[in-house]
Write a protein that binds this DNA or RNA. Structure first.
Lengths: 365, 365
DNA sequence: AATTAGCACTCTAAAAAAGGGGTTGACAAA
DNA sequence: TTTGTCAACCCCTTTTTTAGAGTGCTAATT
């Protein structure tokens, strides 16, 4: 009777687990002992493998959907796979360059960087891509300007440190001429540049209440702007999801119901946003960049058969957003993780590029 | 021996056709002669109805998916139904008020009116809602402003007559101070206000080439702006689709393949945009407001089992956009048509509200 | 002429039955 | 500790049955 060294036993166990995960990801069919004996571990018999698989099942890594008929990985197995078994895949330099180029082209061409990024993610991953930006509330302001449209009507334009642009119409009963508006804008910018929206609001309220001379005559407008800034939507988060259709592609009708549920959740937005927000806070706390949430690790039960691979975007010391993909639980984690990581770094670079030193403003040349 | 008056015969035929359409929309099952005899025309036998249905089939209004097993409406039948048989449904005053209120609330709260509108459409119709805006290219400009962000970097903000706001970053090698930028902005606005983007571009090119004194020192920037304005994306159309998930709701797995195809097309955007663009041009030409495209009437074969109900949005004399829903061919046309019509008028009102008289600009108070 | 009743036929959708393939657990042997 | 073997199991697929609904036709009726 031979005694197996524990390391060897463990290694073999892991090999089997890895094989099951990879095989299942590929074929989407329960994996049986025979298959493994023929494919991965040719030097042992299927019976041995059966024994080991029974152990793995007991430990909660595998389970059988039916009494007889192969086993499939549990969420725990995927987790183990992602954490220990998946060697972090480096993206081929060629592929990197290709993406980089495409990213540049798209992002420069179009105003909406975020939408484009989520599309790119979807395209390259074959799953749905998303980009989520935090509440503007918590972001630092780069500028706040007013564009006069008509007497009593103007457009407020807010640019954050990360380059996000928000705009909203402002109506006011007071007629206000463009020159006066510029002064207001200049004053405001001097005061609030680099502050968060929340801070800015407080500062402005104070000025208004104390009747600051710079605000004489435009207090009405300033009040209106503040009001608009307070609306949750103005400072709300933003979520772009693209390529949900892709999830249907590699999917048979089995998961039809799952998919339906998922779409409901994503389109409803509310809960999905909250989920992402929490995830972002977590990542901010732990200072981790890449996060993988597998199946039921997600708070939403509707996502129990899906996984989310995401990365945080930091501008300066602040996490201002998150991006990633949402795809079937049985996805090619290694590839997708590398991809998300890479595109994340591109977007981050792009955002950091925005925060440049502001310069002096003066009314005359 | 009775002789049937032709009007009576025709009326009966129509009654049957209407019944088949409505019944099929409701149950999604082929309709047989017996059913009609029991439901719609109780004073005739099923045999008679069979005869009439045979006629209708010959004329191309009905067809049998299988040799025996009831008939279902063809696209032609739906067309006839929409054109002649569906009495235009008025929306209940109560429902109108409800929508109006909700619309107001949403649209005012959030900067992005278009996204909100398409969401509202989706919610109320139970299908996917879309809003499409024409190439900015063809829209009149209300204002074009520049917000300085950093030396050599600014944000261009373009507001069109219909209230659409586009923005894009402009980089320039020349350092340019804010005050100078304001002068440029003022000059440009005086020249191009009320023109289309295409016209504006031409005008500016001329000034630049002729070395107009107002542009001295900022020609570089102006050139850069023009270049950015030329990019197809800057002036591109915009398409928002929301609620595709809803299409899956009332759908069994039968149409799974159809749905997949549809999503592919919509997410790909290119061809779907073109389709909408053509539709918009058609409606502009015919000065019709409401359009219904049934199944294969749509150019895209992927949409052969779907219908599009859309309405044009006009600002002044120009069609600037379109909105509507895209849903299963077997939808409740009457209800949806009324809905699209109504929301269309709301959006239109909202857009027209924007084009107000601009006012004089002066550098000092 | 127009409608109806009756009938044989067709076809589908759902249910039931049969077959095949792959897997498992158990146990004895190596 | 591993292996070979085997009965039992269960799913998936295909085939067969069955029930039901609809049709077209013809002859009878109004």
């Amino acid at each position: 009777m031979r005694i197996l060294k524990p390391e060897v036993a463990k290694a073999r166990k892991e090999k089997i687990l890895r094989w099951v995960v990879q095989q299942y990801v590929e074929t989407r069919r329960p994996v049986g002992s025979q298959m493994i004996a023929e494919g991965a571990l040719k030097d042992v018999s299927s019976a041995t493998i059966r024994n080991i698989m029974a152990e793995l099942e007991e430990e909660g890594y595998l389970y059988q959907p039916h009494t007889s008929g192969g086993r499939i990985p549990t969420d725990k197995a995927y987790r183990y796979y992602v954490d220990y078994l998946a060697n972090v895949q480096k993206m081929a330099a060629k592929e990197r360059a290709q993406i980089e180029q495409q990213y540049d082209a798209r992002v420069n061409e179009v105003d909406n960087m975020l939408v484009q990024t989520s599309r790119l993610l979807a395209m390259l991953s074959g799953a749905a891509g998303f980009v989520y930006t935090a509440q503007v509330e918590d972001q630092r302001i780069q500028r706040l300007d007013f564009i006069p449209l008509a007497p009593g009507m103007m457009l407020a334009v807010l640019v954050t440190e990360s380059g996000a642009v928000k705009h909203w119409p402002v109506r006011s009963n007071t007629l206000i001429n463009p020159a006066r508006l510029r002064l207001l804008s200049r004053f405001i910018n001097e005061e609030i540049q680099g502050r968060t929206l929340a801070e800015a609001r407080q500062i402005l309220w104070q000025y208004i209440h104390s009747g600051h001379r710079e605000l004489a005559g435009v207090a009405d407008v300033a009040t209106q702007v503040l009001k608009d800034m307070e609306r949750p939507q103005t400072g709300g988060d933003e979520l772009h999801v693209e390529g949900i259709g892709r999830l249907l592609e590699n999917t048979t009708e089995e998961d039809y119901e799952d998919l339906k549920q998922m779409m409901r959740v994503v389109e409803e937005r509310e809960r999905f946003s909250n989920l992402l927000n929490e995830k972002m806070a977590d990542m901010d706390r732990s200072q981790k960049k890449l996060n993988v949430s597998i199946g039921s690790e997600n708070e939403l039960k509707e996502l129990k058969n899906l996984s989310i691979v995401s990365t945080a975007c930091r501008v300066g010391d602040r996490t201002v957003g998150m991006l990633g993909i949402i795809g079937p639980k049985h996805m090619e984690y290694t590839r997708v993780m590398a991809l998300v990581n890479f595109i994340g770094s591109l977007l981050e670079a792009s955002m950091n590029n925005w925060s440049a030193l502001p310069f002096e403003d003066s009314e005359n040349e």
